[in-house]
């Protein structure tokens, strides 16, 4: 387990964990992105098993709601818990999701499956994948802290319907969402710098 910050601050940090096989570089990039953007401390926990229990044979995808339910049943000694997987996720009524979170809850999950350039028939692009991962992770973290979707297409809390929406939005909160994000963290006893987002 890699940790930034002492054990006394664990309950005020974000835990990032892979579900099934995943390139370590991705986990570390997501952790670094969250730390840079929000000044939050993080720890990277050891890998968990692939979420085979959530596989839906009819759809050939993994039910992210079931995974989230399973994660919430586990005990996590941290403020928020973000799982990363490379399987294809869905929720009932939607054909796919890039990520899912419990609004105001502890757990969230994101998938690399549809964030990779290869999925859209393009050449592999690691920088693009990292950019998309960072945005999706920050989006789900925002939900975990009680933020809902934003109407501003440039804000990271905008609800992406497709990958073009994710590519269009910025890796940052709009000023309104940032203030809300900061306020929610303060309610959790965490103070971050009143930095204006790059908007």
């Amino acid at each position: 387990m890699k940790s930034k910050g002492g054990s006394s601050t664990l309950s005020k940090s974000i835990t990032i964990c892979s579900l099934g096989p995943l390139d370590d570089m991705i986990t570390e990039h997501v952790a670094g992105h969250i730390s840079n953007r929000c000044g939050l401390q993080y720890k990277i926990s050891s890998r968990m098993d692939s979420p085979k229990y959530a596989f839906d044979e009819k759809r050939g995808q993994y039910n992210s709601k079931l995974i989230l339910k399973r994660l919430t049943e586990l005990s996590h000694n941290s403020l928020k818990f973000l799982a990363i997987t490379q399987v294809d996720l869905f929720v009932p009524i939607l054909k796919y999701v890039f990520g899912l979170a419990q609004v105001g809850g502890q757990c969230s999950i994101i998938s690399t499956y549809r964030l990779r350039a290869q999925f859209y028939g393009h050449e592999p692009n690691q920088d693009l994948l990292m950019d998309r991962m960072g945005k999706t992770a920050l989006h789900e973290l925002g939900h975990s802290l009680g933020l809902t979707h934003c109407r501003d297409r440039r804000c990271v809390m905008y609800s992406s319907t497709n990958i073009a929406d994710t590519d269009f939005k910025r890796s940052d909160f709009c000023p309104t969402c940032f203030e809300l994000f900061r306020w929610q963290l303060e309610n959790c006893g965490i103070r971050i710098k009143p930095r204006m987002p790059q908007f």
């Binding site: 339910k69 990520g99 609800s159």
Partner: peptide, 26 residues
């Protein structure tokens, strides 16, 4: 339409109060 989509998503997942990023309707 965006508001209705959010409302539908909340109603379909009212047991867990979740929010998703991504996804076209089935």
């Amino acid at each position: 339409t965006s508001d209705e989509r959010e409302r539908l998503f909340s109603m379909a997942n009212d047991d867990l109060n979740i929010a998703a990023d991504g996804g076209v309707s089935v």
